[in-house]
């Protein structure tokens, strides 16, 4: 029995270095993606995250064109492209009639087309797959350090801007009358979104990067009522999905990035059913009401 459990859960990580790296990589990613996702959900920016994930593609593709599958070149390119799109979309929103989601949507679809074109200019289809779906099993030391740095930086910055950020979400008009922090805090938050997407991009690729950000956070909404606990629960769900996903992909021979996201999807459906905050099964109990 114990031996079977060992073979099932621990053996893959004990025997293979790349599995350990993948585990650590996806854990650090989940640690910062959890809280970030919670804010994206609460600010109704779930789809904005998706849009920005695509927006970093052309930048990463240009980095790839110049330097091949190089970590630093693709990171730098993605960073520049992501921030550029965030700022452009912000400017368009501020100065035209378009809302932020609409302006982001138009920028990201252009970016995606541009990115895929750029990658296919030089690379093979394998490279394109690598860019689109990532390579959590091929994380080297440099990539792990990058992911860990991004994660630490994100958590530190979130701690610093936490109060104005919450206020920006819940009552932006009020924040504007008491402090001029609103706009810089929003911009800083968008930058955090970009760097976390770059983390996710290295592990899961552009198409699934947003999955590690959103799915755990959306699931967490079904379990708790305060922002603080939501961030914790979101991290835990992310870590759980990563570990289970890697184990499943190892034993079943599935692509690991998508399997992690699929596991996050399973946890989402479980939350949707069982979560005490609006989970579907709890609706059945509705008929009993309280005294006051």
């Amino acid at each position: 029995m114990m031996a079977a459990l060992y073979d099932l859960i621990l053996a893959p990580f004990v025997e293979f270095d790349f599995m350990r790296r993948a585990l650590i990589g996806s854990f650090v990613l989940a640690l910062s993606a959890g809280p970030m996702g919670v804010f994206l959900v609460l600010r109704r920016m779930s789809l904005v995250g998706d849009a920005m994930a695509h927006a970093i593609l052309p930048g990463a593709a240009i980095g790839y064109l110049i330097a091949g599958l190089s970590l630093s070149a693709m990171t730098l390119g993605g960073l520049i492209a992501g921030c550029l799109v965030a700022i452009l979309a912000g400017l368009v929103t501020r100065h035209t009639q378009l809302r932020e989601d609409a302006s982001l949507a138009s920028f990201y679809i252009i970016s995606l087309a541009l990115g895929v074109t750029l990658v296919s200019l030089k690379g093979s289809n394998i490279d394109l797959l690598h860019v689109l779906f990532g390579s959590v099993l091929a994380l080297d030391d440099a990539a792990l350090i990058l992911l860990a740095s991004i994660s630490s930086f994100t958590i530190l910055v979130l701690a610093v801007i936490y109060r104005p950020l919450v206020l920006e979400c819940v009552d932006p008009g009020f924040l504007r009358t008491i402090s001029s922090m609103g706009a810089p805090v929003h911009l800083l938050f968008l930058c955090l979104v970009v760097i976390n997407l770059i983390s996710g991009f290295h592990a899961m690729g552009t198409l699934l990067a947003v999955g590690v950000l959103m799915l755990p956070a959306i699931s967490a909404r079904f379990w708790c009522q305060s922002v603080g606990t939501m961030m914790g629960v979101s991290c835990v769900i992310g870590i759980l999905a990563s570990a289970l996903g890697l184990i499943a992909s190892y034993h079943l021979g599935l692509a690991s990035g998508p399997t992690i996201i699929l596991l996050a999807g399973v946890l989402y459906f479980l939350s949707l059913l069982l979560g005490p905050q609006g989970g579907l099964l709890w609706l059945l109990r509705r008929s009993v009401h309280l005294e006051g």
């Binding site: 919450v166 979400c169 009552d171 932006p172 009020f174 008491i178 402090s179 922090m181 939501m230």
Partner: peptide, 29 residues
Amino acid sequence: PQSADVDRSFPISVQELVAMGLWRRLGAF
């Protein structure tokens, strides 16, 4: 304001929201 643009679905307690009136004293930290 007339209709404060408070996001009422945001999970924040009355106490936490009202505390923001003390912003001038508390600031961000």
